[in-house]
Nucleic acid binder design. Structure first.
Lengths: 335, 335
DNA sequence: TAGAGAATTGCATTCGTATGCAATCGATAC
DNA sequence: GTATCGATTGCATACGAATGCAATTCTCTA
């Protein structure tokens, strides 16, 4: 670390030009003659010079960095989302600063670090934001886009799928297929997605004259969801259908029902998930689920963030993308 | 972006002190009296001042940033590893710069960006490094730690599990349980882990007078692994055991054998995986596998990286952590 | 060949913070 | 009350690259 690194001055000296020339040589819009460019590049190559991004950021006042906050990397849905987001921003020439937070954890320290880091945009994957920080981002005109999480604050953009209608569809589909004892495995109390899915689900049941048979929290966590399932099935009569707030938990339910209760899916119990993660399509599960359009969500989020970063001004938008029911084999068909 | 942000000068002016005082107030070892600290903090709070990390990095010549290059986020093993690594470095006060590369892709552009970004350390998760870049990292004394990938270059540190012996165990275990037609699903040609697992596996078979019945590449990818499985089972007699270079592919094999060939695991075919991802323990799979000690690997890698970053000098180490066989139910027992 | 205009080049300054050094302040000891 | 020593403070500069401006060179035309 001590070692002085090669700077544009070193290159300049070796090439016999000024530091400005070297700088111009490495920036797209610099005006240099082909001849000097040659000399400079040769010298740079010889010395192993690379422009120092930090110094560049300081003078241009732009870090070309986006901070990503993510809370559930163990959930394949978010791993996928992160992967896509990463690709997108990389290809746009942005660097990604990654921050992991616990699912329900507070993002205070992390947000503080992000603000200091001069990130030009913030992408939040299933992570929430307190109002003061949201306000601070707005004050500094740093665009924030939240995927699948809502904040009671109009300054930030939000991209989510139509959780309410996804839940609604799940509820009405189950009823329409003749189920009567519909249970729900919710995620976290603090999660807005879960709340919407639940609301939609309940409303659907209600509209058909039913209510939720039982409800438990699985915290979007596999083992917790297994426990939730056990709790749902402690007393007879068992639910005849389970709607889980995501695939991860739906699959936990399937595993538990099969292995511990000897129940068949869908003959004995129907299960519906949410997300349409890759696992849902596996032969073992054939999980009927509600697909969130990952690609579109990431694309929308990236577009919003990039747009606002480029414009340099915030134009908070709330975008809700349509969800599509994926019918597989985990719901018993009527008749 | 245009808007001038609040600087230490602004705070200084408001607090009626010098810029140095403000700086000292925000750095751990600065000497300031309680009184001025109060004034400064009050002023800072009032203005919403936060030290600019970029300027700080420039002057201290230390970015407190680690670059992480990862290639397979869809594989739960690496998603987990990334999560752990992220937590570790965050808690040590480092920021993570995330770069995704395709599994077999070249890392040239990415490495170039990393070097410019002034990262103080590089962590490579299942991603490879070309010799010139390895050399450049050494030249700049930037420590590099590779997890589960090897490079023919002594300058970088490597952490991996004992892939050879894991493979060896799988081979001998299958033979010891009476299997005779052992097939292998390899990962990528370019992956050193796959190569070691294979070598161990073959050596074990060989030592018992057997050889590999058939071998296919699944590229560490679920669907590719399913295709590989189909290829392995095109002609009778079928293999009576399959060893896959990771759990992800082993599970793909299980799914395919059950769903498309109507074969039972382990009655008809035994399957062994590698990694011990969470899925392996699910009731549906009960996958016998070779556990890589994720925690230990990340801990070791972090320790190596942090140590070298702190020392400011490279001391490349190759650490191979022991692997532990996890016996579950996917291998038919003799007799 | 001279002159006008365009293209290059170099100079000097700037970004926001940290820090060596010297000056100042405060407290303690006598 | 004064000398002394340590704790604070401010000044000035440095980090490495980008850029406005002026100086210079080049290019082309008449």
């Amino acid at each position: 670390m001590k070692r002085r690194s090669v700077t544009s001055y070193d290159v300049a000296r070796l090439a016999g030009v000024s530091q400005s020339a070297v700088s111009r040589c490495f920036s797209p819009k610099g005006s240099i003659s082909a001849k000097t460019r040659e000399k400079v590049l040769a010298a740079a190559r010889q010395l192993g010079y690379r422009p120092n991004t930090i110094a560049r950021s300081l003078i241009t006042r732009s870090s070309r960095t986006v901070a990503v906050v993510v809370s559930q990397l163990d959930n394949p849905f978010y791993a996928l989302t992160l992967a896509r987001a990463s690709r997108t921003f990389q290809s746009e020439g942005y660097h990604l600063l990654l921050f992991l937070v616990s699912a329900d954890g507070d993002t205070t320290d992390v947000m503080s670090e992000i603000l200091q880091s001069q990130a030009e945009g913030i992408l939040m994957l299933a992570a929430s934001l307190t109002t003061p920080f949201a306000q601070e981002c707005v004050d500094r005109s740093i665009p924030v886009v939240m995927i699948n999480r809502t904040v009671d604050f109009t300054g930030v953009s939000q991209v989510s799928s139509d959780n309410y209608h996804g839940g609604y569809w799940a509820g009405s589909y189950l009823v329409s297929q003749g189920h009567r004892r519909m249970a729900f495995i919710n995620g976290l109390v603090s999660s807005s997605t879960g709340a919407y899915r639940r609301r939609g689900f309940l409303d659907a049941l209600l509209s058909q004259g039913f209510s939720c048979w039982a409800e438990e929290y699985g915290e979007y966590h596999f083992d917790k969801a297994r426990e939730a399932t056990r709790r749902l099935f402690t007393k007879q009569p068992y639910p005849d259908a389970v709607f889980a707030a995501n695939d991860h938990m739906a699959i936990a339910a399937v595993e538990t029902l099969r292995a511990e209760f000897g129940l068949r899916i869908p003959e004995d119990v129907s299960v519906i998930g949410f997300d349409d993660t890759p696992l849902a399509a596996w032969p073992s599960y054939q999980l009927t689920t509600v697909r969130q359009p990952v690609e579109d969500m990431v694309a929308a989020a990236a577009e919003l963030l990039l747009g606002q970063m480029r414009e340099g001004k915030l134009s908070p938008v709330q975008r809700i993308l349509p969800v599509v029911p994926i019918l597989r084999g985990s719901v018993r068909q009527r008749g």
